[in-house]
Write a protein that binds this DNA or RNA. Structure first.
Length: 233
DNA sequence: ACTGTCAAAGTGCTCC
DNA sequence: GGAGCACTTTGACAGT
């Protein structure tokens, strides 16, 4: 951030302005004023640590939540599901193949259709593959989506949703960075403004003008102000 | 047990 | 009509 200056336009500044204009004049302008999510703290402290590696630490065998079923991937592509809670009174264990589990995941389904919403938890391997793919291109063509879905072992819809959410996270993070940059920029301008006001006050408080000969005015006599302590010559 | 955070998924909108 | 986005809901999970 030290590269920010009040006079010039540093690289950082340019990037900032570019990104800000993208945010304001680009995508977001398609909608009415972007209501900030509570996680964006303008002029507040910066926020959440990077979320990118969140999935990376996840145990590949961690439960996969689908509706009210916890599914744990076992060896040989078999899934153990605990229906209706994590081993509670009404829970019952069900074994199914990974394919069955995926079929169970299905595509869009609304909570209104009886069953509760499903919650998939990606394995670290899946997350890594998606992350790698996102780094290559953050928007997928239909073919790329299908291919990636096949490789990762998810439905195309799930890959699509993951990319959508990932783009949203990237954008949110960038907004946070931009806000922080803007805050610092504002602080600097405030400081600069205070300094200029002090200078002005000093000039106004200076003693009456001193009569001197100004060389740039053909040697004519002129008046120049005397600034406290040092002459402006 | 409670709370906050994160991320998957649902919904509705706009744009092309 | 499909794709992407903003916004929202919801479940998992970690920290207290």
């Amino acid at each position: 951030m030290s590269s920010l200056t009040t006079a010039g336009s540093s690289m950082e500044e340019q990037v900032f302005h570019t990104r800000l204009s993208l945010e304001i004049g680009g995508e977001t302008s398609r909608r009415s004023p972007p209501p900030q999510k509570t996680t964006v703290r303008l002029f507040g402290e910066l926020i959440s640590p990077p979320q990118d590696q969140h999935h990376g630490d996840r145990d590949p065998r961690a439960p996969v939540m689908v509706g009210r079923k916890h599914k744990r991937v076992e060896s040989g592509g078999v899934v153990t599901a605990v229906v209706n809670g994590g081993g509670g009174r009404n829970s019952k264990k069900v074994r199914m193949t990974l394919q069955q589990a995926e079929d169970d995941d299905g595509d869009r389904r609304s909570p209104s259709d009886g069953g509760s919403r499903k919650k998939l938890r990606l394995t670290s391997a899946q997350a890594t593959m998606l992350e790698d793919s996102f780094r290559a291109h953050n928007i997928l063509s239909h073919g790329q989506k299908q291919e990636l879905a096949r490789r990762v072992g998810l439905s195309a819809r799930q890959v699509e949703v993951w990319f959508q959410n990932r783009r949203a996270r990237t954008k949110l993070k960038q907004t946070e960075v931009d806000c922080e940059l803007l805050r610092r920029w504002c602080d600097r301008l405030t400081d600069e403004n205070a300094r200029l006001r002090r200078d002005l006050a000093e000039l106004r408080a200076a003693p009456p003008a001193l009569s001197v000969v100004c060389p740039s005015c053909c040697g004519k006599k002129t008046t120049m102000p005397v600034v406290a302590g040092n002459n402006v010559a």
